Computed example of a mutant assay.
Amino acid sequence: MKPSLPVQPNHIAILRLSALGDVCNLVPTVRALQRQWPHARITWIIGKGEYSLLAGLSGVEFVVYDKSTGLAGMRVLWKELADTRFDVLLHMQQAIRASVLSLGLKANVRVGFDKARAKDAQHWFTQLQLAPHPNAHVLESFMDFARLLGVEDDSLEWNLAVPPVAYDEARVISGDGPYLVINPCSNVRLRNFRNWSVEGYASVIEHAWVQHGLTSVLTGGGSSLEREVGDQIEALCQPGSVINAIGGTSLKGVLALIDNARAVIAPDTGPVHMGNAMGTPTLGLYATTNPQRAAPYLWRDFAVNAYPDAVSTYLHKSVDDVSWGQRVRHADAMDLIKADEVIAKLDALLAYTAAQPTTGPTHES
């Protein structure tokens, strides 16, 4: 017999370790749970880097798991929570590592994704599963957990915490003039293939500088690839049109930069969802992943969508013939995105937001 869901949960656990974009998309679910049950404790088990982005999120107790510590780190976490029993565990990570971690947590009921969305056999580790939701955006998939529990108000709210020191950091980098944030690289990992060309970015930066008077601030991590890409872009641009801050910011500093930017441009990576969470106009570049599933949620209409072309060119199928989460793992797929198309989308985004001021998510400082 399957356990029942609590009518009035007193302690809710959320298990979602990564990644930066995904945890941003999960925050509205947390806010929906808080509105429904304002006195419930919410404990979020989260990755180390992701915690540095969301630290200070109001009403949430974080338990940090450093994925590099493996099983030894799991045992430390299990010991930390040995005396804690959750009314419900929301298992929101479709990865075997997270499922193994969930085994050491005590919960009256464990909720996971439906079989169609439960990668790595996640449904074997949960007792109740979500109702099917074909073709759901990642944000909607997370919100389905709140809906299953009985949440009625699923309106979107973020209120990310950005401390004053982060705004100080951002001002030192950006100066006083208007600017774009461009995060040119996605996560550095095998067969990711989400990065656009340096020549394309240079063309967009030139256009933003000449036509809109906008400097472009480059952001990203400190990997050798990201630094190399930043240097290559900078070398192609006019002096003064670009500020290369790749490897030189904290995650909170990036949030502050994004908050004060005119717009964000990036491929399928965390900063597009950080922009979405901060209410900043955001232009995502998509060819290897489906923007209907993974684009910045509030700005999907402005995403550059070369995914159908990539599916046709490299998989020899139509979008309707591939699974919802299908990726196009081909090194040339992002070359299907043309600079003129990105420039046109940027012009449309800037015109739209100038005519209709953004009333997006809010933040705490």
Rank of each mutant, 00 (worst) to 15 (best):
P6R: 14
N10A: 14
G21L: 04
D22T: 08
L33I: 12
P38H: 15
I42G: 13
S52G: 12
G70V: 07
R75S: 12
A82L: 06
T84Y: 11
F86R: 04
M92R: 11
Q93F: 06
A95K: 15
L103S: 02
G104W: 10
K115I: 00
A116P: 10
A118S: 13
A118E: 08
H123C: 00
T126Y: 14
P132H: 12
D144T: 10
F145I: 03
L148P: 01
G150S: 10
N159E: 08
P164L: 11
V165K: 15
V165E: 15
A170R: 12
A170V: 06
N187I: 09
L190C: 09
F193N: 13
V198K: 15
A202G: 06
S203K: 14
S203F: 00
I205K: 14
T215M: 05
S216D: 03
G221R: 14
I233E: 04
C237T: 09
G253I: 03
D259I: 04
I265S: 02
T269I: 01
V272N: 06
P296Y: 04
Y297P: 01
W299D: 02
R300Q: 15
R300D: 00
A303T: 10
D309C: 02
T313P: 14
K317H: 09
V328D: 03
A333C: 07
A339F: 11
D340K: 08
A344F: 00
A348T: 00
A354Y: 02
P357K: 07
T359F: 09
G360M: 11
T362Q: 15
